[in-house]
Amino acid sequence: MLKVENLSISFQTDEGMITPVQNVSFAVQAGRTLGIVGESGSGKSVSTKALMKLLPGNSRVSDEARMTYTDKAGREVRIDQLRPKGRDIRRLRGGEIGMIFQEPMASFSPVYTIGNQMIEAIRLHQKVTKKEARAQAIAMLDKVGISNPVGRVDQYPHEMSGGMRQRAMIALALAARPALLIADEPTTALDVTIQAQVLELMADLQRDLGMGMIFITHDLGVIAQVAQDVAVMYLGTIVESGPTADVIRNPRHPYTQGLLKAIPSLDALHDRLSPVPGDIPSPNERPTGCPFHTRCSQRLQGLCDQQLPPTVPLGPNRSVACWLETPEHRTGAEVDAQQQIKQQEPAQ
């Protein structure tokens, strides 16, 4: 239902031009969830803001970018060709593509009731009376598991608890029944119990409403729970993508491998976690060649720091952007890996 190809986004800043997203392509299918995972600054939020044309004025989307969305009526819309303040993009916003953000408190205007903001969303996209819209809003609040929705609909955001606001925010994004939901770190600010509840809720809602979903997070563990497909982003490029189970079981990019090693596991409680070494470089000091080579333990000197790796297809919907996976280096890399294991053996 959504296809993004060759998306690059650059910003004009005081320190010069930075390009936080480079040549990114991904697709979302109806009823499925695409997880986008990456550290802060990897360009995951910026990419999805481009889909809604919500980027600030100093930004530029590359001319080669193609963003094609198939709407509820089955028509194809080229998002990249829409004017950012036009009627066509407004029709998509909220009505076709819903968006939820990290901070529920800040997502609501504090001076209007939850109901006011939901009814506004509904009436912008459906020709219904205020009364009908209100009934829909109450039904949606009920659907996201808010008790006493009839009373809650007239409450202000500050009258709700944190977990309830989170649910209300999801209800707000879903009020006008979008076909695609973009969730930008929706559970990051929550404690783990509430986080689990919200993830479950979102999975249920997606199933009930048959929505497509883009789920942005820095937490691979969360991705494993909600997403069927995953794209791993590093410094504005997608380094690895594929079905979630496959990527987690068999990570091919050194960065994905590093991320997985950094997840605490019950089997290895005594070991120290091994973080990905180094820090993410600042966007105006982008490394040449592979963006990850500065932190990669398997980098090939003279190649990775010089040339951008190609995207190597590994199967249907599965690909990795790494020199080690190209046919000419594959064998060598495996030999290197075996040597590493051998070197470690005497120490054990």
Binding site: M52, G98, S107, S109, E120, L124, L172, A175, A176
Partner: peptide
């Protein structure tokens, strides 16, 4: 953020 959110629902 609430302004961006409002924009994102098509106001």
């Amino acid at each position: 953020l609430s302004v961006t959110v409002a924009r994102a629902r098509g106001v």
